[in-house]
Amino acid sequence: MTFRLACGDVMPGCNAHFESNDRDSLMQEVAAHASVDHGLHTIDAATADTVAAHIRAA
């Protein structure tokens, strides 16, 4: 199964998109993106939950 996330669903105005066959790998990619592009060096539980809620299976 493929999992997808559009960062703009969480951070309006961001055009980044992510796709992975593994949810954990996807979350790692998103965390790296959040750190580099959004300055979020630490992802708290509430933010992780929000991101996870926007992941779609394709």
Rank of each mutant, 00 (worst) to 15 (best):
M1A: 11
T2S: 11
T2E: 12
T2V: 13
T2D: 14
T2L: 15
F3K: 10
F3N: 02
R4C: 01
R4Y: 02
A6S: 03
A6N: 02
A6K: 02
C7H: 03
C7D: 05
C7W: 04
C7M: 15
G8I: 06
G8Q: 11
G8V: 09
G8P: 07
V10R: 04
V10K: 01
V10N: 04
M11Q: 00
P12C: 09
G13L: 05
G13V: 03
G13P: 06
A16P: 07
A16T: 09
A16V: 05
H17S: 07
H17N: 00
H17R: 08
H17A: 05
F18G: 07
F18I: 06
E19Y: 04
E19F: 05
E19N: 03
S20V: 06
S20W: 05
S20T: 04
S20E: 12
N21I: 10
N21S: 13
D22S: 10
D22Y: 02
R23F: 01
R23E: 10
R23D: 00
R23H: 06
D24V: 02
S25M: 13
S25E: 15
S25V: 13
L26H: 07
M27Q: 10
Q28A: 11
Q28K: 14
Q28P: 00
E29G: 10
E29V: 04
V30S: 05
V30C: 01
A31L: 10
A31V: 13
A32M: 12
A32W: 10
H33V: 06
H33E: 09
H33P: 02
A34Q: 05
A34C: 13
A34D: 02
A34T: 01
S35L: 12
S35P: 03
V36E: 14
H38W: 05
H38L: 09
H38G: 06
G39F: 05
G39K: 02
L40I: 13
H41C: 07
H41N: 11
H41W: 06
H41K: 13
T42L: 13
T42H: 13
I43S: 04
I43W: 03
D44S: 00
D44L: 07
D44W: 06
A45L: 12
A45T: 11
A45N: 10
A46T: 13
A46C: 07
A46K: 14
A46D: 14
A46Y: 06
A46P: 05
A46Q: 14
T47F: 15
A48K: 15
A48L: 13
A48N: 12
D49G: 12
D49N: 14
D49A: 15
T50K: 15
T50Q: 15
T50G: 12
V51M: 03
V51T: 03
A52P: 01
A52G: 00
A52N: 09
A52Q: 00
H54R: 14
H54M: 11
H54P: 01
I55K: 11
I55S: 08
R56K: 14
R56Y: 01
R56F: 03
R56L: 07
A57M: 14
A57P: 03
A57D: 11
A57H: 11
A58H: 08
A58P: 05
A58C: 09
A58L: 10
